[in-house]
Amino acid sequence: MNPIDDDTLQAYVDGELDASEAARIDAALAHDDVLARRVQQARALRAQLRAAFDPVLDEPVPQRLSALLQAPAAPAAAPFVRPASGHGTVRRRAPRRWFVTGAALAASVALLAVTLWWWRPGGELVRTQGGQSFAAGALEHALDHALASEPDAKAPVAIGLSFRSNDGRLCRTFVLRRAPARAGLACHGDAGWELPVLGAAAPVAGGELRQAASALSPEVQAAVDARLRGSVFDARQERAARDAGWR
């Protein structure tokens, strides 16, 4: 057996080894207390770092940061909030605070524009906002509430897989049962269910769609594969995600 060097041991702790290499370390750990202690130390450090920084994920995001990501500043809003120039040094702790007001103002202007600019391809199931498609009507309702673990054969929308995307959002696949049958992927964000993929679903012989999960078009399947981190939700995780509002 090859000796186990520090880099290999570290890779083991960080989940970087393939199965056979990891099995070799597992076997060595069972009868090598020194090695086992080194692994335990490395794991403890990792856990300590997670314990120190993971709570940041649950902190409320400061308004000055989330405001930067609101709808783009409308040109008309800028003159009202331009800061006085030549006004001495801006303190570092309060950088560009004026921007928050500007962004909030711009956001309300943009919201008005969006509200006035709605359209409904596919019969009120899709709306667009900022050039992006979002679920609406019965599709939005199904994505919000329906569970794949409790299928309803008469519902206009069949839900397939639910999972957490690699950008942190919760995503669900779906099939629209009524003609024209379409399959898609929806990912939940602050603006609702965004639809990065919406395409034709392949009906099987007899005109009936297969089970939602198996009726995924290759396009949807590829989109899922590109986003999937970990595994798709089981029934319990799906329900928990729904009850948490798909956050």
Binding site: L69, R169, A191
Partner: peptide
């Protein structure tokens, strides 16, 4: 812009 919102945490 929209993609960054869920990444903020």
């Amino acid at each position: 812009r929209e993609g960054l919102i869920p990444l903020l945490p």
